[in-house]
């Protein structure tokens, strides 16, 4: 399964980068969302994919069954998802405020610090 996911990750990265290179600020936001998904999936896949054995320990047991999914990348990605949301909200509002002031959807018109 990892090879297939590798292509999915590559595709997501390509789409994200392409959108982030556009001049339209709205497209930049879309690119950001795609980028965070791509990065999360990259970390998740890199640790190896396992079906149907979540990192949970059965009641009364000391250790999970062998071959359990790696919990560490899951913990990393979990916080990353939530933080990505916070950062996205920040970026969206920043862009919105910039738009209110500059009244332009073109990043090229936002390159001066004077308004």
């Amino acid at each position: 399964m990892e090879p297939l996911m590798a292509y999915v990750v590559g595709g997501l990265y390509a789409a994200a980068i392409y959108m982030m290179l556009r001049r339209s600020i709205v497209k930049l936001v879309i690119g950001l969302i795609l980028l965070s998904n791509a990065a999360n999936l990259l970390i998740f896949t890199a640790a190896g994919l396992v079906r149907g054995t979540p990192p949970l320990i059965a009641e009364g047991a000391q250790v999970p069954p062998p071959g359990v999914a790696d919990p560490l990348p899951q913990a990393l990605v979990l916080t990353a998802i939530v933080i990505a949301f916070g950062v996205l909200a920040f970026a969206v509002v920043l862009i919105h405020r910039a738009y209110e002031i500059v009244k332009a959807d073109d990043l090229d018109q936002m390159k001066s610090t004077d308004t």
Binding site: E2, P3, M5, A6, Y7, V9, G10, G11, L12, Y13, A14, A15, A16, I17, Y18, L21, R22, A38, L42, T45, A46, G48
Partner: peptide
């Protein structure tokens, strides 16, 4: 130009992941 850069980055990550696993 952007499409070329985007595809290059995407391919790099695919290769990276294929190698890393």
């Amino acid at each position: 130009r952007d499409a070329v850069v985007a595809v290059a980055v995407g391919s790099l990550f695919t290769l990276l992941l294929l190698t890393a696993t």
